[in-house]
Nucleic acid binder design. Structure first.
Lengths: 204, 204
DNA sequence: CGAGTCACTGGAACTCGTTCTAGGCTAGCG
DNA sequence: CGCTAGCCTAGAACGAGTTCCAGTGACTCG
């Protein structure tokens, strides 16, 4: 609840860094098996070879752990996307293409996606900083995809925010079985039209 | 998990209807005190004068209970909004006005809002039907606000879906303290421009 | 070398959602 | 009236997240 020492931020010894990696790895592995419920703190501790208390020293709650797992995965995805940027011309299409690519990656690990997204939306104020990091990463991915020459305008940043909202919420409806893959695609394409809108009207 | 008798749907005796009301009332009251965490099943049962087992017969999980609470509140809001429709001219502005009105209502009960929205996004597949009902109610409110003369086009329905996504996700960021009220307002106004977009281009 | 400090371990303990059990009350039916 | 079926009550019991505690080991400073 209060601002304790952040084991993630400040420098760790090598052994500690290795512990942290093992924990995140175990978390991701359990999550990709059975989703949010399958990530049980005792199991994570056991599988990563640390005591339960230590696990809680590194990640003060299950939600913190899963949000950190998401940071990790997003990092990977960002690098992957950097290497193979979208092929479309128009910014809107580029963003839509990028998000659909990310979506397909999530489809390959639906349980992992479930665990991470559920944690993200269930996070309360005590996890805000970590969730914010995830949000910034997502923003960076979208801005990269737009392939702008100059810095984004305020309007464009607003559009990106809305795209992120749609992205998260659409993922949730898909994960809970209330929307099909096709529906998610439509939603993404629809919201991406906002980019055209903001690009097309510099000063109307 | 399976399709049992739904106490909500099929006819209940008067005593049963009263019990259900008492439970929902207790749930809302506890929620408005301390949010999601303050709604403890034992307390709800005690405060509404039913046994724990009975509570679970009416609402098979805490999430079910809170989603039902949300249905209840949305019903109210829908009626209130019907009585005082938005004053703006343009559909986009009308929707934005309506959502901001709803948002202000939620600001008056932030804890209750927290409990309901968290439940909604945390709901897994077993709650899909109930969540779907909430979603349909929200859609109805937005479509009402648009004040269309004819049936909405497929494009307009897509826009409404995206608006809903944005609405939910923006609420979450506000509730978890990561976005200000002003920011939520901007996001809503931004996404509502999609309505103009779909209205202005019937066949371009 | 000795003492103190701090992270880590193993495991008990606590909370709250959920399930289960035994028994009691009510309503309809023979 | 007495019986049976269901619903309800009280409360125990179970599972998983979280907290706590006593002990241990390693590292640092004197």
């Amino acid at each position: 609840m209060t601002a304790e020492v952040k084991p993630a931020a400040l420098q760790l010894t090598e052994r500690q860094e290795a512990r942290r990696r093992r924990i995140l790895h175990a978390s991701a592995r359990l999550a990709s098996r059975g989703g949010f419920d399958a990530v049980q703190m005792r199991e994570v501790a056991e599988n990563s070879g640390v005591a339960l208390g230590t696990l809680y020293r590194y990640f003060p709650s299950k939600v913190h752990l899963l949000v950190a797992t998401m940071q990790d995965q997003l990092q990977h995805m960002h690098e992957t996307l950097r290497k193979r940027p979208p092929t479309e011309e128009e910014p809107a299409a580029r963003v839509a293409q990028t998000l659909m690519r990310a979506f397909r990656a999530l489809q390959r690990e639906p349980h992992l996606a479930d665990a991470m997204v559920r944690a993200l939306t269930f996070a309360d104020r005590s996890v805000s900083p970590e969730v914010d990091t995830v949000s910034r990463l997502t923003t960076a991915i979208i801005l990269d995809a737009m392939g702008l020459d100059e810095a984004p305008t305020a309007e464009q940043l607003s559009a990106v925010r809305v795209i992120e909202h749609t992205w998260h919420s659409a993922l949730i409806t898909w994960l809970s079985g209330r929307a099909s893959i096709a529906q998610v695609k439509i939603d993404i394409e629809t919201v991406c039209r906002l980019i055209d809108l903001t690009a097309a009207t510099p000063a109307r």
